[in-house]
Design a protein around this nucleic acid. Sequence first.
DNA 1: GCGCAAGGTTTACAAGCGTAGTCGATGCAA
DNA 2: TTGCATCGACTACGCTTGTAAACCTTGCGC
Lengths: 129, 129
Amino acid sequence: MADSEDQPVERISDAEHAVMEALWEKSPQTAVEVCDSVCGERGWSMPTVKTLLSRLVAKGAVSTEPDGRRFLYSPLLARDDYVGGESRRLVDRLFGGRAAPLFAHLAEAEALSDDDIAEIERLLKEMRK
Amino acid sequence: MADSEDQPVERISDAEHAVMEALWEKSPQTAVEVCDSVCGERGWSMPTVKTLLSRLVAKGAVSTEPDGRRFLYSPLLARDDYVGGESRRLVDRLFGGRAAPLFAHLAEAEALSDDDIAEIERLLKEMRK
DNA sequence: GCGCAAGGTTTACAAGCGTAGTCGATGCAA
DNA sequence: TTGCATCGACTACGCTTGTAAACCTTGCGC
């Protein structure tokens, strides 16, 4: 596995991430569609989205496919890969690479809902099988 | 609680974080001492550390205390607060604010060691009490 | 056929960041 | 007492990011 990307796809910025989310939600999409999804909540204008899309294409995180006179954009980077990378980064940077302290921290900060706890217990049970 | 910081201490960058780690490890420290801790592993020179320390002071994340002709630096921002904030940010941004999916992701990516799992189970047991 | 609208590409520009050199004060050694 | 080493402050500079305008091309409607 993991030969879907030779370079680990340059780091994606925060604003770019918002665009990726839109594409992960549904793809392919035109620039206009992406703007419809994100311009509202982020207060962006069309040119901003265009720039972000270009940068993402340049970074190899998004692919384009011509559709008449415009482009359809699709994510090249899978959301799981991105999320995994970011999670790993955080755990490495802040918790010495170990997940338990992260968990402990969330628990202590009461950032865990009852649902979360139940869900995690379920997952643990499953893993032990 | 939480009146230890009126503004949430401007966001701390990656390089700055390395300096904070040194100060969390031991404080107060002089600039030279901090450099001793971090210049090696990061390949930095003294001026870089000075700049980062200044920026951290400007951001209100580090306090200074004169000691003769030089300064002693101490963290103002607690590591727990920082770590908590960053964790929260990640969980919010990537997992809709819920921790269970993060956990699921780490589990799936086999980012959890056996020790981690054991530890988390222990924590869960404790929380249920 | 021709102008306009729609879409992509280029350029812009301020703020933040990583990294570091220079400057100015000052205490200590000779 | 004078020069030098030391330390913080200021300045620098190229790169990325956030945000967007200007520009260029091209297909479509009149």
